[in-house]
Design a protein around this nucleic acid. Structure first.
Lengths: 202, 202
DNA sequence: TGCACCGGCTGACAAACGTCATGGGTATGC
DNA sequence: GCATACCCATGACGTTTGTCAGCCGGTGCA
């Protein structure tokens, strides 16, 4: 019995390469390819795959959101997340969304097919090095408002700009920023944004 | 006569997938794979490839630097740059470094082999959409020092930190930053970093 | 009923930041 | 020779930022 695989990656070159790689395996067939996150569910309904390979960074809807949407419509489909950078926060959120596996693109190509097989058989596949980082990174210490304000601060505007974006007073924004800076152990607003982004808290 | 190809990409999964993809072509052989930019020259000297496929983002030495180093030691080797994002500045710098082609990872997988063939036969391969952006983005208006200071500002440190990193006085750093902010039409140091990064000036 | 916590706001203040004027040094080009 | 541009530095300035204290309202919990 062959494993039916659906591929979702925004980089056509990578997507095609992975497709040929997996199609060479005797027990697998790539039944579909999409380049956008919001096309995943429709493609899955059409092609009925056993395993879906999802990139985290995609236009329309990111891998996390696509996993959640997929898990709701087709609960039996296994999801294997493949991503470029091993952001600790991604792993946690991906597993919470219902993903069965998490593989970084640094892993050898031969292990990908094996990961697909494991996921298909119901096992969880998690990059060991990444799992350690995930525990170290932990849950976000930021409150909802702090994350929102910090997210708005990414564009590099002034406090007044941020206040306008989130509809708060400037003083409140400064307080939230100060709190976020303290929690991330950063020295700056910009530094806090950097730290929070790298920890997957935004 | 088969085309000998050397692959350089830090993502093992992508690298392996591209290798199988190109190895399927009857007129190509992948003679080597490396995951770091500073291993490219040594691998090229050992395996004598006709074409080297280089990713821009690599540890040790980036694709631009690797191209320059390669061009100096082995001038006959053709270089085809493959990158994730089509930053306008990359294209310009890559061609200046001696690259023969520039392909973004959004291009269909089938066109990659064709691009390799064209580069091998002495033609230049440039993504059309990217070429337009490159002209729009234009040359960096920043001076050497301004770029250096702005690069040091990416970590999110204070002026004192930056001054220590680049061995300048704090006042001078502020002047360079102010100039860079003006040239990028940003409102902030953080904003200037963002703009310069997106324009490929760092 | 208290207590702790989060959200929101204000006011104040020291530190950091961005800007400007000014000076001198060097290399490039007409 | 002279203009131009870049680099380095200093001092001064007004603004922005980060921090702190205090106050109020709402929520969840012992």
């Amino acid at each position: 019995m062959t494993i039916r695989v659906l591929l979702a990656d925004d980089q056509a070159l990578v997507r095609g390469a992975l497709a040929t790689l997996l199609d060479l395996e005797p027990d697998m067939t790539v039944v579909g390819e999409v380049g956008r996150g919001d096309e995943v569910v429709a493609a899955a309904q059409e092609h009925r795959p056993d395993v879906v390979l999802l990139d985290v960074e995609m236009p329309g809807l990111d891998g996390i959101g696509a996993t959640a949407a997929l898990h709701e419509v087709l609960p039996d489909v296994r999801v294997l997340i493949v991503t470029t950078f091993g952001r600790p926060g991604y792993l946690r959120r991906a597993l919470q969304s219902g993903a069965s596996g998490f593989v970084v693109k640094d892993t050898p190509a031969r292990q990908l097919a094996e990961a697909v097989r494991r996921v298909h058989s119901g096992l969880r596949v998690v990059d060991p090095a990444l799992a350690a980082d995930s525990l170290a990174g932990g849950d976000s210490p930021l409150t909802a408002r702090e994350t929102e304000v910090l997210r708005a601060a990414r564009q590099g505007g002034s406090v007044a700009d941020i206040a306008r974006a989130v509809s708060l007073s400037e003083g409140t924004v400064r307080n939230h920023l100060s709190s976020a800076i303290g929690k991330t152990m950063a020295r700056n607003r910009a530094d806090a944004v950097r730290v929070a982004e790298e920890s997957g808290w935004l």
